[in-house]
Nucleic acid binder design. Structure first.
Length: 651
RNA sequence: GUCUCGGUAGCUCAAUUGGAUAGAGCGUCAGCCUCCGAAGCUGAAGGUUGCAGGUUCGAUCCCCGCCCGAGACACCA
């Protein structure tokens, strides 16, 4: 049983004398925030005092009086308004540490209630290359899968790729009109990406051309409004200022929109061959949509093209997943659900959940004005329909008890509507959660782009991380009197450090916040980074290597001794690995694991600095410290592995 | 306009969901290698948690009103 559960059990007995509902009280027992107050704190007395109408310190005294915990802790202390502070006995920490030191699972017991969780993540559009935007979903989703599995759950990772949408119409149109046969032979995926970009650019050109007069007019209107306010301000100065700043903002955003449109138009006009293409394909957007419709309608020509494109697209994706070390149990894209969509709509109509509004089939959810549209007025299905079909499939065929969607937080409204619709549709015992995340920003505070303004390709991002890591690895090894690494080993370490750096930078932020992408910080060798943890791991491996000791021989149950504050702090920290994992899974927040890893590495560094292994006072103490070192190495290795990050024994 | 998030040290982020004197890292300044890997360690400075109220033993967190920013709002996924 975990350390925390053991303590909670003791409190449970004591609390039963005061209340029948002890569960919420036990939640209030937790690791202490400030080490001056001990190791654990119970905050239940304050909360309970209201129900018992007794002063909180009195309640605390009663709880302590009924508490039998002497074998684990020093005498509990009551502090402040009624905190109960616990300090574990060194002997107890030592015995627990001894007990789990040989455990493969590092003291983490598999969950008592395993469930089948489908994790939907990454999910790129296959017709275009992956970019930074896909990074967070992929990295966070993978970490969640690994952590759930380690905790003992059954996990199905599912890459719900976009292989059926409008972008396919665009590449079909592009292929039909603009393909370069030699390039297609040579590099089909690169050629498809070029075609997608081209069709997109030409459509945007016409679209912006059409919108241009309106945008220019909007700038004018905003300007006039501003002038009016300047000449005729509101009598209330506060209000006048507010109106003026509002008008200024409006003018700025109108001007920005106009400038954006201009830049799209100019990018085509500035190249005569592009302009010629644009002018000979004035209806390109509509025609591309028609290609999509024909594909969905079963047109054999388009189906054949789709069948030809898809394998190439998927294998290009696979190459990236291989480099990232991410794998999926299934890859069922939108196309997989195509045949089920009519029946989904029928079923919702039958249950009278769906109604027809402005020609489209919609589900209206209480409190939401916008409909959840499952069939457009032209008869086409939407991604809402696909998502519903997917829920049905995952529940009925895969037998999932829970589905997680690791998707950009901008889609939270969509998921709210989806979940409520699914619930009304009859999937009310299924756990559905949108595991949302924020945007990756550039240093300018806007979504991360290249200097030219394009989105950053994932492949080049990985390349750059590895080459930057290589510089660090080289510098470090070259500094040594005798370098430890061969060129091939250096290349391998650079991969581990570079990719680990990308992933860690992403995972160590609370997923909900936007975060700023910064190469220097990500690959810094100091501070809260993957490299710091990986280095700590390599240092430990170095100890065993130089002493010619086999780490596995320190897992036989020899006693761990606590002789000083550094050993105590490290052991106590290591005993709470299970708590860290629980906290990650309670709301799918991997940054709680990175925080634990960093704290653990920090405590290890202090231990390592002050407690010599080699020159320990006795053979028993030396052995005890080696046990801690081995356990620490496994904690780092396992903890990082749960985040999808590798380690190297020498670096 | 409506709705949803967010505003915390110079910078990047935490704060175990209402707990104690708000914590880390980077950066800055000052120290530590005849001593197990210095990609390390030690110390210092740095805060009116956007503003103003309210709820209570206790508020970064909950409620009200402003200010600022981002995003979503009917046939794109």
């Amino acid at each position: 049983m975990s350390l925390l559960s053991t303590i909670r059990n003791r409190f449970d007995t004591a609390l039963r004398q005061l209340t029948s509902d002890t569960a919420p009280m036990l939640e209030l027992i937790r690791p202490v925030q400030d080490p001056r107050f001990g190791d654990f704190q119970a905050n239940c007395a304050m909360s309970l005092s209201r129900h018992l109408s007794l002063p909180p310190r009195e309640v605390a005294a009663r709880i302590v009086a009924g508490l039998r915990i002497d074998d684990l802790c020093e005498t509990p202390e009551i502090a402040g308004p009624g905190f109960i502070n616990l300090r574990l006995r060194d002997s107890y920490i030592a015995s627990r540490m001894t007990a789990i030191a040989g455990d493969e699972r590092l003291g983490v017991e598999p969950t008592e209630r395993p469930r089948h969780v489908v994790v939907d993540f990454s999910s790129p559009n296959v017709a275009k290359p992956m970019h930074v935007g896909h990074l967070r979903s992929t990295v966070i989703g993978d970490a969640i899968c690994r952590t759930l599995k380690f905790a003992g759950h059954r996990v199905t990772s599912d890459n719900h790729v976009g292989d059926w949408g409008t972008q396919f119409g665009m590449i079909i149109y592009g292929y039909r009109h603009f393909v370069n046969p030699a390039a297609w032979q040579d590099d089909p995926v690169g050629e498809l990406a070029r075609l997608y970009k081209l069709v997109n650019q030409l459509s945007d050109y016409h679209d912006n051309l059409a919108r241009y007069p309106g945008l220019a007019e909007a700038v004018n209107t905003a300007e006039q409004q501003l002038q009016r306010l300047q000449h005729n301000p509101d009598p209330d100065p506060g209000k006048a200022q507010k109106l003026a700043s509002q008008a200024r903002r409006q003018r700025e955003s109108a001007a920005e929109a106009l400038a954006a449109a201009e830049s799209v138009i100019d990018s085509v006009r500035s190249r005569t061959e592009l302009l010629a293409l644009a002018e000979s394909h004035p209806a390109i957007a509509r025609l591309a949509r028609d290609e999509t419709a024909r594909l969905h309608g079963g047109d054999t020509g388009n189906q054949n093209l789709w069948n030809e494109f898809l394998p190439a697209c998927l294998s290009a994706l696979q190459r990236i997943y291989d480099r990232l070390g991410v794998r999926f149990d299934i890859t069922l894209g939108e196309s997989y659900y195509n045949g089920m969509l009519p029946e989904v709509v029928e079923s919702l109509k039958r249950q009278e959940l769906a109604t027809i509004s402005e020609g489209a089939v919609c589900v209206f959810v209480d409190g939401n004005k916008a409909p959840f549209m499952i069939q457009k007025s032209d008869g086409a299905f939407t991604y809402a329909t696909t998502d519903l079909a997917t829920i049905r499939y995952r529940t009925e065929t895969l037998q999932a008890a829970e589905i997680l969607y690791v998707v950009d937080k901008r889609q939270s409204e969509h998921f709210q509507l989806l979940f409520r619709t699914a619930q009304k549709w009859g999937y009310d015992r299924l756990q559905l959660q949108h595991v949302s995340f924020g945007t990756v920003m550039g240093k300018d505070g806007k979504p991360y782009k290249t200097r030219a303004g394009d989105t950053v390709g994932l492949e080049s991002l990985i390349d750059e991380a590895i080459s930057r890591a290589r510089v660090i690895v080289d510098e470090n090894d070259d500094r040594r009197d005798v370098p430890l690494l061969s060129p091939t080993e250096r290349a391998r370490v650079a991969e581990i450090v570079g990719i680990g750096g990308i992933k860690y930078a992403d995972l160590h932020h609370n997923r909900d916040s936007d975060y700023v992408f910064d190469w220097d910080r990500m690959l810094a060798t100091t501070g809260d980074t993957a490299a710091y943890m990986q280095y700590a791991y390599a240092r430990i491996c170095g100890i065993f290597r130089r002493l010619s000791l086999d780490r596995r021989s320190f897992r036989a149950g020899d006693p761990v001794l606590i002789t000083g504050p550094e050993e105590r702090a490290l052991a106590l920290q290591l005993l709470q690995f299970d708590f860290a994992i629980d906290s990650v899974l309670s709301d799918y927040r991997p940054h709680l694991l990175t925080a634990w890893l960093f704290e653990t590495a920090d405590k290890f560094s202090k231990f390592y600095d002050r407690c010599s292994v080699q020159d320990a006072e006795s053979a028993e103490l030396r052995r005890s410290r080696l046990i801690l070192c081995d356990f620490m190495a496994r904690a780092l290795h396992t903890g990082l592995a749960l985040l999808g990050i590798e380690t190297a024994e020498v670096m």
